Amino acid sequence: MMAVVRSLISVVDDDQSVRESLPDLLNEFGFAVETFASAEEFLASGFIDKTHCLILDVTMPGISGLELQRELRLRGHAVPIVFITAHADESIRPLMIEQGAVDCLFKPFSESALLDALNTALQRE
């Protein structure tokens, strides 16, 4: 299944290795990518309205992934969100999906799981 050509995926993660490795993979899938080290950086970036899907770390210093999700909703931005987390607490997944997330992937996740989540997110647009 082909991804929508050059849909912009914004990656918000305080882990530099994630910000360096994910864009390569996403580019291979055919997406355009912007990365941000914090929720605050993303909110100030001017990319909110251009983002087709947000890959968002759950736990970050400052504004957390869940707080960013809430803030975007308050501002009227319905950008689909795929959460990623290194904290394998299965109990948070249903909560995030209930609050509107497309999926919550636990690191390390497979390329196919990520692509499936992104395709689902982009179909919601």
Score class of each variant (00 low, 15 high):
Pro61Arg: 11
Leu54Met: 07
Ala32Gln: 06
Glu28Ile: 10
Cys53Tyr: 06
Ile81Phe: 10
Glu41Thr: 15
Leu68Val: 05
Gly65Ala: 04
His87Tyr: 06
Cys53Leu: 02
Ile63Trp: 09
Cys53Gly: 03
Ser64Leu: 05
Ala32Leu: 05
Thr59Ala: 12
Val33Gln: 07
Phe36Ser: 01
Leu43Gln: 01
Ala88Trp: 14
Arg73Asn: 07
Ala88Arg: 15
Ser64Pro: 00
Val18Gln: 00
Ala37Cys: 10
Ile81Ser: 02
Leu66Ser: 10
Ser45Gln: 02
Cys53Ala: 06
Phe47Ile: 02
Leu22Thr: 05
Asp57Glu: 03
Asp57Asn: 02
Arg70Gly: 09
Glu90Phe: 08
Glu90Tyr: 07
Leu74Thr: 14
Phe36Val: 01
Arg75Ile: 04
Ala86Leu: 07
Gly62Asp: 07
Ser45Lys: 00
Met60Cys: 10
His87Cys: 12
Thr35Leu: 02
Thr85Ala: 09
Thr51Ser: 10
Gly62Ser: 06
Asn27Phe: 09
Leu72Ala: 12
Thr51Leu: 09
Leu22Ile: 08
Ser17Thr: 14
Ser38Met: 12
Gly62Cys: 06
Gly46Ala: 06
Met60Gly: 11
Ile81Arg: 01
Glu28Leu: 12
Asn27Cys: 13
Glu20Cys: 13
Phe42Ser: 06
Thr59Asp: 10
His77Leu: 05
Ala86Tyr: 02
Glu34Tyr: 03
Ala44Gly: 11
His87Phe: 10
Gly76Lys: 11
Gln16Pro: 14
Leu22Gly: 06
Ala86Gln: 02
Leu25Glu: 09
Gln16Val: 14
Val79Pro: 01
Asn27Met: 12
Phe83Ala: 00
Pro61Asn: 10
Asp49Arg: 09
Glu90Ile: 10
Ala39Trp: 13
Thr85Asn: 07
Val82Ile: 01
Gly76Ser: 10
Cys53Gln: 03
Ile55Pro: 13
Val18Asp: 01
Pro23Ser: 00
Val18Ile: 04
Leu66His: 11
Phe47Val: 03
Arg70Leu: 12
Ala32Ser: 09
Gly76Arg: 08
Ile84Leu: 09
Ala88Lys: 15
Gly30Ala: 04
Ala44Pro: 04
Phe29Trp: 02
Leu56Val: 09
Glu40Trp: 08
Ser64Asp: 03
Ser38Leu: 08
Gly65Thr: 03
Cys53His: 03
His77Phe: 14
Leu66Tyr: 13
His77Lys: 09
Val33Arg: 05
Gly65Glu: 01
Met60Ser: 10
Pro23Gly: 01
Glu90Ser: 12
Leu72His: 14
Gly46Thr: 08
Leu43Cys: 07
Gly76Cys: 08
Leu74Phe: 15
Arg19Asp: 02
Phe42Thr: 08
Arg73Trp: 13
Leu66Gly: 09
Glu34Gly: 13
Ala88Leu: 15
Pro80Ala: 01
Gly46Tyr: 03
Asp57Ile: 02
Leu26Glu: 04
Leu26Asn: 04
Leu74Glu: 15
His77Gly: 02
Asp57Arg: 01
His77Trp: 11
Ala32Tyr: 04
Glu41Cys: 15
Leu68Gly: 04
Val18Met: 00
Ser17Tyr: 14
Gly76Asn: 05
Arg73Gly: 08
Thr85Val: 11
Gly76Pro: 07
Thr85Glu: 07
Phe47Asp: 05
Thr35Gly: 02
Gln16Phe: 15
Ile84Pro: 11
Glu71Arg: 02
Leu72Thr: 13
Glu20Pro: 12
Lys50Leu: 07
Pro80His: 00
Glu90Asn: 06
Glu28His: 09
Val33Asn: 03
Met60His: 12
Gly76Ile: 11
Leu25Cys: 14
Leu43Val: 06
Glu40Cys: 10
